[in-house]
Write a protein that binds this DNA or RNA. Structure first.
Lengths: 228, 228
DNA sequence: CCTATCCTGTGGTCCGACCACAGGGGTAGA
DNA sequence: TCTACCCCTGTGGTCGGACCACAGGATAGG
């Protein structure tokens, strides 16, 4: 048992028992070290891991915002894990795309049955119509759109995984843009597909929305020929 | 920019560029520290994070197995993230169950169309028939069965997420067992449902397999009344 | 040739120190 | 009395150095 794991177990137990809550603060590193009978470097290694896991956010200085504050940020760690394992090439891009299709088509189907509030989503689409958007800006809005769609289904886990998938592959997508035959034409097509998806959602057409989402994602990745 | 992030970026870049591969080794902590112009404690914090992300495995001693070896182990970090965020109560158990149903029914549907090798799966079921299994032992085999099913679909990402979900909720499931009215009867029912799922897979009945998986998972969680 | 020992390099842990930062309270001035 | 400023305190961030346990390989001895 490595020493820093003492801190991880302690924090997890405190969370599960309600002794630590979102917005609360960990004891100071020096205090924690003395309580657990370990050194401050060991405590710091654990805090780093918790930070990487999206459980705490550290800040220097004093006041309520300083120290190691408990947060619940599952997206960044999931993104980091996916990005690192994509980098090892042991996580095929095709599998990521397949997962996106599964999650997003499910989310679209689910959202269509909920008659959700589509105002913010439509506003995103309007912003994507702005002329002169760079591929980078366009894709950031595109990512927001897809994440918002996933959020409409009301499952925080699936929404988090979706956002992580988008973030993890963002760099790869941008790198593939120059290989597209005609970026402007592609963007026009994507805009139209987005509008069609939203229309299907507004009409409560679950099967239609799911099918459109599937075609939308598949179409883009085939056009971009992302490496697997 | 915190110093330990230098190491993370360096490692990710080396992975993406192919300078680091699975089975390779990171430079020693002291060497890395000098190369990047930072201290060894900073390097160690980064290595801890990479270890928590399932990218490296550290070991003391000497020889090819010692040091920080590059691995690709996405399941344990995903499990850790899910467990920690379940502990914060900001990740509803209901969402986890819903995600399991989505992923597993998809995997069953996919596997049914592939006429996969079901031998290992059936062997697991046979082991679950052994009399006198404790709930703990039963559920470990049950977890293996579900993970194996997810693996039949051939998507490493979905299989990893599935395994993580199972591992993350394992403790909660075991804790709920005593609240079941009749554990033995429950186990008999689960065994029968497992056999039916495998039969549907063997017959290539995609819709049937997916429906059985959905009912199997939903039924158990309703019986166990897991907290959300 | 075989065996037992030592050497070397690895991560694991600890100590003590100093820095940058930000808030809060005390103090000097108006 | 009120206000503005400054210092004090506590926080994480970083560093250097030291020692330990461990495991393999090199080496000297039989």
């Amino acid at each position: 048992m490595k020493n820093y794991e003492l801190v991880l177990h302690r924090v997890e137990a405190d969370l599960a028992a309600g002794r630590l809550r979102i917005g609360g603060r960990l004891p100071g590193e020096r205090v924690l070290a003395e309580q657990l009978g370990i050194s401050r470097p060991s405590v710091r290694e654990a805090v780093r891991v918790l930070e990487a896991m999206g459980v705490v956010r550290t800040a220097t200085g004093s006041g309520p915002e300083a120290g190691a504050v408990i947060v619940a940020e599952p997206v960044s760690p999931l993104t980091a894990v996916l990005r690192l394992h994509l980098a090892t090439n042991h996580l095929p891009m095709g599998d990521v795309v397949q997962t996106r299709i599964l999650l997003e088509s499910w989310a679209a189907r689910e959202a269509a049955g909920r008659s959700p509030e589509l105002g913010p989503v439509v506003e995103l689409l309007d912003r994507m119509d702005a002329p002169g958007l760079s591929p980078e800006e366009f894709h950031l809005l595109d990512a927001e759109f897809h994440v918002a769609l996933a959020g409409l289904a009301g499952n925080v886990l699936i929404a988090a995984v979706m956002e992580s998938l988008r973030s993890a592959i963002h760099g790869y997508v941008l790198a593939a843009v120059p290989s597209l035959p005609d970026w402007e034409a592609t963007a026009v097509g994507l805009r139209g597909e987005h509008r069609a998806i939203v229309s299907a959602l507004a009409a409560g057409d679950a099967d239609g929305a799911a099918g459109l989402v599937t075609a939308h994602i598949q179409g883009f990745y085939q056009a971009a020929r992302l490496p697997s």
